[in-house]
């Protein structure tokens, strides 16, 4: 009976966590590139419970009689907890903003040979020395393509991470120190469908590549569930194996295709960046609201169980053995 009290309390705690997770999804319903979390509830490990000081189990035909041992009553689950919040990496819908620094990432990569899910991400990092590529440890992944240009002329996310190119270097759009000869792409920055960075040269009117920046640093993450959510729309890779840059992944894919492992390439032609658009959060407000309501009712039910057990305990404590009751 006392166990039931703790079981219900664990239920209430777990539902509180689920409510927090749902509230965070709802809070980010307008955050570009946000991926909703789905809570996973898990029962506490099962215990085998047995009768105290009773060696004689029931005598049931067909079952072995376990005399001389504590008689087993059965298994008991002692409650529930929220074990993990799975980020759902499904594609969010895209919305037009007409801003040159908004870039939506669209992907429909097919699973790899082992059937693992694959997703495409932008790479970003905090960098001390901007002349050098970012340290491998500092690289983070994001789907948020809502960028701006900072005071030094570099492409950054709203939280100050530098957007990286395919060589893990920060992307300089405007050369602030050299107003005459330096590069000044400004609002004229062009990002192609494949993530190539270009600008229109005013002298010749042709599209030129940004110096040193051929392409946005896109990464293929196999089994994206292994990414750790850091907040601010940023994920850190903590799984086994490596995250492949798009060029490497694409080359491997082409090789596997050429070797006849599958009928069509699984990466090439299945992704694209779209400038002037953003990928919206993939949160479904309806579903989240419904989830909250059911969490609320389950919470209430758990509370009723506690109240009921409390009532039973009340009887045991105050009414049993009362003289002249």
């Amino acid at each position: 009976m006392i166990r039931g009290l703790y079981t219900s309390a664990s239920g209430m705690l777990a539902l509180q966590k689920r409510q927090e997770s749902l509230a965070n999804n709802l809070a980010n319903v307008n955050t570009p590139g946000y991926k909703q979390d789905v809570g996973v509830m898990r029962a506490f490990p099962e215990q085998l419970i047995s009768r105290i000081r009773d060696q004689e189990g029931p005598n049931i035909q067909g079952y072995p009689n376990l005399n001389e041992q504590a008689a087993v009553i059965g298994r008991l689950n002692s409650g529930v907890y929220m074990s993990e919040a799975l980020p759902m990496f499904t594609q969010g819908d895209i919305a037009e903003t007409r801003n040159p620094f908004d870039v939506a990432l669209l992907d429909n990569l097919q699973p790899d040979q082992d059937g693992n899910e694959r997703r495409l991400f932008y790479s970003v990092a905090r960098i001390e020395d901007l002349t050098q590529p970012a340290n491998a440890d500092d690289i983070r992944y994001t789907r948020n393509g809502n960028w701006s240009v900072n005071a030094d002329g570099y492409l950054v996310t709203p939280d100050g991470y530098y957007v990286l190119d395919s060589q893990n270097q920060a992307i300089r759009v405007n050369d602030v120190n050299d107003p005459v000869a330096g590069i000044h792409a400004g609002q004229g920055l062009k990002i192609s469908r494949l993530g190539e960075l270009q600008y229109e040269d005013p002298a010749t009117g042709t599209l030129e590549n940004l110096p040193n920046n051929q392409r946005l640093g896109l990464f293929v993450v196999t089994d994206p569930m292994q990414l750790v959510r850091e907040g601010t729309n940023i994920f850190r890779w903590e799984g086994d194996g490596e995250v492949e840059s798009l060029d490497v992944a694409e080359a491997n894919d082409q090789a596997a295709w050429a070797a006849g492992e599958y009928g069509a390439p699984r990466i090439a032609g299945r992704y694209g960046t779209q400038q002037g658009w953003i990928e919206r959060a993939n949160v479904d407000p309806m579903q989240t609201m419904t989830g909250m309501m059911s969490a609320l009712r389950a919470y209430e039910a758990n509370q009723r169980v506690i109240t009921t057990i409390d009532g039973t305990l009340d009887k045991a404590a105050n009414e049993i053995g009362r003289v002249n009751g």
Partner: peptide
């Protein structure tokens, strides 16, 4: 989290819950 929870997970250990949203940029 319980020790036995380390197995059969889809995500790295720990439970991560965000703390909301803010206005990021007004472009």
């Amino acid at each position: 989290q319980p020790e036995v929870d380390q197995a059969n997970r889809n995500t790295p250990p720990g439970l991560r819950i965000g703390s909301g949203a803010r206005l990021g940029l007004t472009k």
